[in-house]
Nucleic acid binder design. Structure first.
Lengths: 227, 227
DNA sequence: CATAATTTTTAGCTTGTGCTAAAATATATC
DNA sequence: GATATATTTTAGCACAAGCTAAAAATTATG
């Protein structure tokens, strides 16, 4: 419906879209610093400063020198539309084209900038309007709103608690593969059998009675909800 | 950073790819003039001259000033890989996402520059390795070779001849729609009932006994093979 | 074949997006 | 509060691709 494509307003450049997504990803709700954005995008800090000026000019971010940047209403909507595209594309690649979790990311990163809104909505339909992608991350609605996510890291769960995996952090392919191989994927039900304060190790048991022992970093990469 | 980074060698820019496809499309086998390319891409002639220099530098075209440009072996392979992507994507959009013939073109034009080779081959598999797209155009093989096309324009058929539609010219959406509405699509069998030299009008009858009378321009937009 | 028309190239400018090095500001530490 | 460290900005530059206007080469016409 709206948006860049159908109403003939000129499209945002790939770079512009990358910055919006970076600001959204890095400054969750609040504001993002030049350095954070620069690292997230692997771009020199000076380039970020430069681009933030332009983005403000375009009305996509609010920006005060030396104080970081945050998304305007419009910038936020654009960012979430990107996230919607990204997650729907990932879902398609994983479920229908036989991609592995490692292969998916790079492809979606490129395609999200190329597909139209028409494509996106047709794809959503084709996929049965999923509410979450295969990582368990919620897929924003076409209007740029997103379901609140109330999952906590498994690391924060208490012994004896019963939980359901809602999401696995996507940032590291190795971590993703580790969990995938052990069936620790979104939807999986677990019981927390032990939590050790000293080293942050946490032990869980799945529905088939298998135990898994996770060090602190791994336990912070799985997000769970009460079950 | 211009669209770079992926499988192995650095990617060609979208512009570069557009030029290669234009040279392929415009100078079928032979060479393409600055003006032809300029018109095909809606770009100023001076910009074409400029780009042809760069493309030669990259080893993708052979170019002599004032004499036009032609694709090198490598340029030709790249162009055909693009065509393969384009036609597979079109097939997917039409067959699985419910696109109309009008909507398809623009989307494929953007996506062909964004999808990886992995995506392309997975998609081909998903579609059952089709040899032709829904327009009847042959889909080049992954190695950049393409089946010879021996279809002639319907305009050249003789009265009484039995033919099969092999392809409909894609250049005009209106023409496409006209034929689509009447079921004159690739695969359709026809009998030529009349050919009129004076005005080039040609009449055909389809398998259901419907007659169609086509003026010369339309008769030159449908390509047929002997049946 | 000389001149007119067309096509192509050259020259010089613009915009978007990146970079580095140096200067300015903010934050942290003594 | 003064100074050291870290972050951010400014200034100046590069490169891909586009543009226009003027010059040059090619092709067509009388």
């Amino acid at each position: 419906m709206n948006g860049v494509v159908s109403e003939g307003g000129s499209r945002l450049s790939v770079s512009t879209e990358d910055y919006l997504k970076a600001i959204w990803a890095v400054g969750r709700g609040g504001s993002a610093s030049t350095k954070e954005i620069s690292e997230h995008l692997s771009v020199a800090p000076a380039s970020v400063t430069n681009m933030l000026g332009r983005l403000q000019e375009m009305g996509l971010v609010r920006y005060e020198r030396y104080r970081g940047a945050s998304l305007t209403e419009r910038g936020y909507r654009e960012a979430l539309r990107l996230v919607r595209k990204h997650r729907l594309i990932e879902t398609f690649l994983l479920e229908h084209l036989g991609y592995s979790w490692q292969e998916v990311h790079e492809e979606a990163e490129r395609l999200e900038h190329a597909v139209s809104d028409l494509f996106t909505e047709r794809l959503a339909e084709y996929l049965g309007h999923p509410g979450r992608d295969p990582h368990g991350d919620p897929i924003p609605a076409p209007d740029g709103t997103m379901e609140r996510q109330e999952a906590r890291p498994l690391a924060e769960a208490a012994a004896g608690e019963r939980v359901r995996i809602s999401r696995v952090d996507q940032s590291s392919p190795e971590v993703l593969e580790y969990f995938g191989e052990r069936g620790l994927v979104p939807g999986r039900r677990l019981r927390v059998t032990e939590t050790r304060k000293l080293d942050g190790v946490i032990a869980v048991e799945d529905e088939e009675g298998n135990s898994h022992t996770l060090g602190a970093p791994l336990a912070r990469s799985v997000f769970v909800e009460a079950d």
